[in-house]
Amino acid sequence: MGKLVRSHATEFALLAVIAAMCVFLSLATNNFFSLGNAFDLLNTSSVNIIFAVGLLVVLIAGGIDISFAVAASVVQYGAALILGWIGGGGWISGLLIAGGLGILLGAFNAFLIHRFRIISIVATIATFNIYFGLLMFFTQGVSIYDLPDWLTDRIILFEQEMADGTWAEITLPVLVMAVCVFATWLLITRTTTGRQLYAFGDNPEGARRFGINIGAMQFIAFGWLGMMAGIGGLIQAHYAQEVVPNALYGRELDVLAAVVLGGARLGGGKGSVLGCVLGVLLIAITQNGLNLLGVSPFAFKMIIGAIILAAITLSNTSLEKLLPFMRQRGARQ
């Protein structure tokens, strides 16, 4: 048990913080501790979690991707157009098209990174501008509201009437999210490919000497994120019931913050699916709790920013590091 805690310190710390917050919010508000609210949290967090597990794979492989959120917007638009051409389609063809387009966009990043040795942050900042600029240019910023019915109809997987007459519902995005989370977990912890990704992120030269195919690693990592971005994009369109070209603009940094809060390391080799999901949930619960506590919505981001800043500062500060600093202070006074 002690070993488990030590090797998953970030996850346990996040769990403890989330638990403490839940206890506090349950006592401080009337509505937090309810099935309806819990389901709501899951429904609203689904898209971010899908993005997050995708980004996690790239971070584990030692890369970073700034372009995935706008890539998701491109996929939304592209998928909506293609579905129109083929006469409507359905969930299966929709997910295949979205996933496929996403993989293509991710593979383009991997191609630039692997073929021309452009480091991932430079390559993806370039593709961020290319994807977003071209999307806005060709769409003129016009949204699509005329989506196929199957895409905009809410699909309720589980529902229960609450005592106050409202309905607690789990909707399709949660199922898709669960499948994506499980698939990512399977990939990175249970398959040889996943372990190679970890090894490549941890020590690229060591991985190379073992004969791991470096190019394949880049294409798998960025392709996986591309696929998740595509699926997440489609689900977001389903959830919002519209396609707005700049709806996901800026989402990349929020997701990045959540994933790293969940213990993934910029630089590679470290990170878990559980931590990643907890990171997204921590932010979602904070926002939800602030809402229920009646805090002005304008203050949410400020508080969340302060929390992340504090979390990063604390998680990077061990006591030994702080002590000499404090001792020096003391000596000078």
């Binding site: 040889t192 190679q196 970890y198 090894a199 020590n203 080799g269």
Partner: peptide, 29 residues
């Protein structure tokens, strides 16, 4: 290797038996 070419974040077991996850096609670990 002089720099050992090990993977610090992975467990000792995985480092020692890393050859079992090498190979062209994905398998379960």
């Amino acid at each position: 290797w002089q720099d050992l070419a090990l993977f610090p974040e992975m467990t000792v077991a995985e480092n020692i038996a890393f050859h079992t996850v090498i190979g062209r096609w994905p398998r379960l670990v």
